[in-house]
């Protein structure tokens, strides 16, 4: 009885979280939704007499993998924008049709199967004297080779991360003197202007006003300006809006130059 109640409660929670994961537009929300799905799964495992799996699910997936997701999102997320241009026309529509069709087919077929009484893991647990010993016996006898060979996977992953991400220094590290020189050469050695004397607010996406009352484009964070323009959150004051647009355009240009010479070398 308790198991049934838990199942139905968690079914609602996890399915709606999973749907939220797919349909949410903000990456951080997606990650948090994924966390909810994983936690619900962990509880379901625990209810099904698999405490080890439940603990591992929480420690490894929710604890480690999810946190990594969040870190990655927070470190690279703000500055990235997805291109939602469809390269194949109607791709999303047909993908949705195919996906729903597949889901219906799967649900019907699995629902059709006359599944006998679930064996559960209780019996197996008791035979081996507990859940963890039972798992240990399988992992270290029948499936020991799979367990050992998974180490090749871990080594590959570590090596791959090094290859793709480790950058070796090809020129000497710039000293403080070099940095200072570069700063003066850039033509604007000081910090960016603050909100200014004539400011009406001090939000970071609002351009500062200089002492003569004119608007300083320099003071707007370009990434935030781009988001403002994309989401249509421009201030009413046309002068401020223009400055934000200008900064957003610069950001676009900057991005295009990073994406680089399209014809590869």
């Amino acid at each position: 009885m308790g198991e049934t109640i838990t199942f139905w409660v968690l079914a609602v929670v996890s399915v709606s979280a999973a749907l939220g994961l797919v349909f949410s537009r903000k990456a951080v929300y997606c990650a948090l939704m994924l966390g909810v799905v994983m936690l619900s799964l962990a509880v379901l495992y625990a209810v099904q007499d698999a405490p080890f799996l439940a603990a591992v699910q929480i420690i490894v997936y929710t604890g480690a993998v999810m946190m990594l997701f969040l870190f990655v999102l927070m470190m690279v997320g703000v500055d990235s924008s997805d291109s939602l241009v469809e390269t194949i026309r109607g791709q999303r529509f047909w993908a949705m049709i195919a996906g729903i069709g597949f889901a219906v087919l799967l649900a019907l077929a699995v629902g059709q199967a006359a599944i006998g009484d679930p064996a559960g893991v209780t019996g197996a647990n008791q035979r081996a004297g507990g859940n963890v010993p039972a798992l240990a016996e399988l992992i270290f006898t029948r499936h020991v080779f799979a367990f050992e060979v998974a180490s090749a996977l871990l080594i590959t992953a570590a090596l791959g991360a090094m290859v793709l991400a480790h950058r070796e220094r090809t020129r000497p590290r710039p000293t403080q003197k070099d940095l200072a020189k570069a700063r003066f050469v850039s033509g604007y050695p000081g910090p960016l202007p603050g909100p200014g004397t004539y400011a009406r607010n001090n939000a970071i996406d609002m351009p500062a006003r200089l002492p003569d009352g004119s608007v300083s484009e320099l003071s707007v964070n370009r990434v935030i300006a781009r988001h403002d323009v994309e989401d249509g959150r421009l201030p009413d004051d046309p002068e401020l809006a223009e400055a934000i647009r200008q900064a957003a355009a610069e950001e676009e240009e900057h991005n295009a130059s990073i994406a680089g010479p399209k014809e590869d070398r």
Partner: peptide, 22 residues
């Protein structure tokens, strides 16, 4: 497991061409 052991290095190696890197 073997499928992954085989594929993971290949995914990596595919991205390491010297020319036409994109």
């Amino acid at each position: 497991v073997a499928l992954e052991v085989m594929s993971l290095p290949l995914y990596l190696l595919c991205g390491l061409a010297r020319r036409r890197r994109l």
